[in-house]
Design a protein around this nucleic acid. Structure first.
Lengths: 344, 344
DNA sequence: CACCGCATCTGAATCGTTTCAAAGCAACTC
DNA sequence: GAGTTGCTTTGAAACGATTCAGATGCGGTG
């Protein structure tokens, strides 16, 4: 059924070793032999069996990336950055979607480990320190993405979520808002907690501001819509005058629910700010303010750190933390002259 | 470094065959032996080497999915559907992003073939008939996604793009528009051509309507913005009164460019409709009309067909074609009471 | 012409798992 | 007690690519 090196060797009239050399070390092979072998490969339609190759090599040329939610453009952007950087190093990326579910996360890690992937990038749901430790002991390096590493053994690439949260709420306060709601969850996700902490700091710095926390079951448009409906249903006096959503998908859902009911005006009644600054924010009913993360760069950097660690496992671990950037738009009362040029 | 079955066997005091049986056919093994083996596995931290397993088995439990653009929520939804269906069959999905680039597409197909993936799902850029034929000859089944198969040898799951295009433009005409622009490209992508053909049909059915074609280099927000700026820059009399965008990302970009310049009102001056009906459309500045495709279902169905073909390679090929559905919103002058509940 | 160095080629050994024919063993039948 | 049955276990063979120590051949040298 499948053509193997042996058959190629036979057809070309050389040994299997020579075939392998043509494939992997062409400089060691004479012009004539190379010709014969490449011809035979073409004629027979030979395709290298990666499993056999890996078995011998001990490690694959694939790296695994586990994200919290593939539907979130932030993560597809991270994946894109990772893919680029990996491709440049001759690696490819296997993308897993944990859907904020620790079990699925664990399943993907198992899968990656069985595959002896080159390395793992992960945006974890819960605490994976122990897990990554074991992985590394068995020779698979790992890098945390969008989360600061808790110990010295793991590199990480992230954004200062606390600062991001602080900046977001500071901005809301600067716009005159005082009764602020934080929408996010579950709190097992570190980003959710950190952004809240940042929010709290900004509140603490402003004596007359108050923070209310509304918990969601996930960071999705649907959950945002649910909370938005709750807020819209309240009597006007009991509504917050600003909402900081833990990410843009939530913000999107919130906006839909608030505006479409027609009862709440954004930003007049309620200001709104999200987090991530995904491309779609500019095009929202009311362009939504957000806190921008350099998503592609995060992916690229994570791969770079992974490569460094894999080349020299004793290399010092790095915790790279980017500083997020406030992007103010109409949803927080800033008249947006917002022709930003995102993308390439 | 790595623990193998041999070491597990030694530690447990049994043969390697027994270890393998514990892993793969536990019912064949006595309770006592199973205990000893599982204990040894735990103690040693044994993790199966998938490469070796595959080498023996001849085929992996991973399937490859190549999409045109991971950043397009339509494709992540398809991927999600595929992932679900695959997981139910004990398979996992390797996601590749061709970025509408035939070379990248080809690279992913090579990669998948070397990996001896279980099967390939592909939303092709150009003509891959020949390529898939060769793949199948070597034992890897393939299913086309979001594209009708050109021959009898390949199954496909798609949406009737011609009908979708027709419905979209028919709707624009019904809303009183006559000078209609189609925005899309490159035309190597079949969906782009088919949707145009549908548009043309609707135009042909209405003697006083005219169609103008504006070509883009890709189906992205950025390209949409570029064309939108061109349209906005025209004198009002030379503008179309309706735009049909080949997909939602383009529509999003168009909307941004049209509305944000402040010169063109949507839908008053220019009506706008997209294609795919991604989640974000409801939340746009002006909620954008679209043609909905059952994206998750497409992914699930594709996996189903792949499984069928892999079980019995002689099974009859199917071309499943879903009928897309018009979703009218404010961007085409329909007052949207649009609380649709998308997602789970 | 014997010897050397160099470039090239060879093929057995190896990676770790699964499979499967054969063997071992205990219980049971006649 | 010989024979049979059925359950477990064994261990060598196989999967296909890569590696590497040694073989081969060739031109050049003294």
């Amino acid at each position: 059924m499948t053509v193997s090196v042996k058959e190629v060797a036979q057809r070309a009239g050389v040994s299997v070793g020579t075939v392998s050399n043509v494939l992997n070390h062409p400089e060691r092979v004479s012009e004539a032999a190379r010709r014969k072998v490449t011809d035979a490969i073409r004629d027979l339609g030979f395709v290298r069996n990666d499993a056999a190759r890996q078995l011998r090599a001990g490690r694959s040329t694939t790296l695994g990336l586990v994200v919290l939610d593939v539907r979130n453009p932030f993560f597809t952007d991270v994946a894109l950055g990772a893919e680029d950087a990996a491709a440049a190093a001759g690696l490819s990326v296997l993308l897993g979607n944990s859907d904020e579910n620790p079990e699925r996360e664990s399943t993907y890690l198992d899968l990656f480990e069985e595959q002896r992937v080159f390395g793992v990038l992960i945006s974890p749901v819960g605490d994976v320190g122990e897990r990554l430790h074991r992985l590394r002991e068995r020779g698979t390096p790992a890098v945390l993405v969008d989360r600061v590493s808790a110990d010295e053994t793991t590199s990480s690439v992230s954004v200062d979520d606390v600062e991001g949260g602080r900046v977001a709420v500071e901005h809301l306060i600067a716009q005159g808002r005082r009764r602020i709601a934080y929408v996010g969850g579950p709190f097992a996700i570190r980003q959710v907690t950190d952004r809240l902490e940042g929010a709290q700091r900004a509140i603490d710095a402003s004596p007359d501001a108050a923070l209310e926390v509304l918990t969601t079951h996930g960071l999705t448009v649907l959950e945002g819509r649910r909370i938005g409906e709750q807020i819209a249903a309240r009597p006007a006096a009991r509504r917050p005058d600003a909402v900081f959503a833990a990410n843009d998908l939530l913000a999107m859902g919130l906006l839909q629910a608030l505006v479409m009911q027609g009862r709440v005006r954004v930003p007049d009644d309620v200001a709104l700010i999200g987090f991530d600054d995904i491309d779609f924010m500019t095009a929202a009913v009311v362009p939504i303010s957000s806190v921008r993360q350099p998503s592609r760069l995060i992916g690229e950097t994570a791969v770079r750190l992974l490569l460094a660690e894999s080349e020299d496992p004793s290399v010092e671990r790095q915790r790279i933390e980017f500083t997020p950037e406030l992007v103010a738009r109409a949803s927080t009362g800033v008249v947006a002259e917002d022709q930003r040029n995102s993308g390439a």
